[in-house]
Amino acid sequence: MKEALVEKYFRAGHLPHLWCPGCGNGTVLGAIVTAIDNRGIDKNDVAFISGIGCSSRSSGYVDFNTANTVHGRALPIATGLKMANPKLNVIVASGDGDCSAIGGNHLIHAARRNVDLTLIVFNNSIYGMTGGQYSPLTPVGSRATTAPYLTIEPAFDILDLARAAGATFTARATSYHVPLLTSVIEKGIAHKGFSVIEAVTACPTNFGRQNKIAAPALMMAWQRDHAVMKAKWDTMTDAEREGKFPVGVLSERNDVKEYTEAYDEIIRRAQGVSA
């Protein structure tokens, strides 16, 4: 990330951040800020709302209208804010546990409504902040402090879930594929509707160590070796896809009305003004 962008978007006096060495959160946050800069959006017109978790700490570092709220429930707060001021570009940062466990219900309903929010899921496959418990996105067979005999619960594919619930833009990238990550976030922000971007990232401290890939470099290599560009993914057989995941823009549709715009229609109806 360019020095100038740090200067422009990161709050003076709040760095260095609290994240562990090798943590992918800083990379993901850098990609978000770069995407915002590339879109040329004024800082005053960006709201950055997060839940609770290591990844959600990100809201404190960036110089926008920011809120570090409660665990799992940044989306309703972001929705209310967007309703109050539809001109704001509202970015939501959420951990895998934050958005798929305690916040799962809010996720599917934000998707169903198609509110124009950009949700970035920092997926490190674990509860980082509380010290390594498994999340609904932890791959089955992983070790966690609450799964000393390995997890037996199948993981969600968070993007399949969001898409099935109505999200009109879904994309995935990793903290290894930074230009791709930046570009899909940029597209997600540009998309009018509910966008979900899964940023596959590394928690060497609490996932890596328990699962014998503690070295950050190893975790990055894992991301490199398991991510497959969407175009190639589409040509692969099920056997070839085994253990891999697609990256890039996975879905986008523009045939569903955005929620705050749809609400304007309600106001017109209530006021007896025909559309």
Binding site: G80, L81, M83, A84, L88
Partner: peptide
């Protein structure tokens, strides 16, 4: 807004209040 539950109800209220 009729929200998905009461928690989201107050969540949207807090968000709208932050929006002024």
């Amino acid at each position: 807004m009729q929200t998905e539950d009461e928690i989201a109800g107050l969540g949207t209220v807090i968000g709208a209040s932050l929006g002024g």
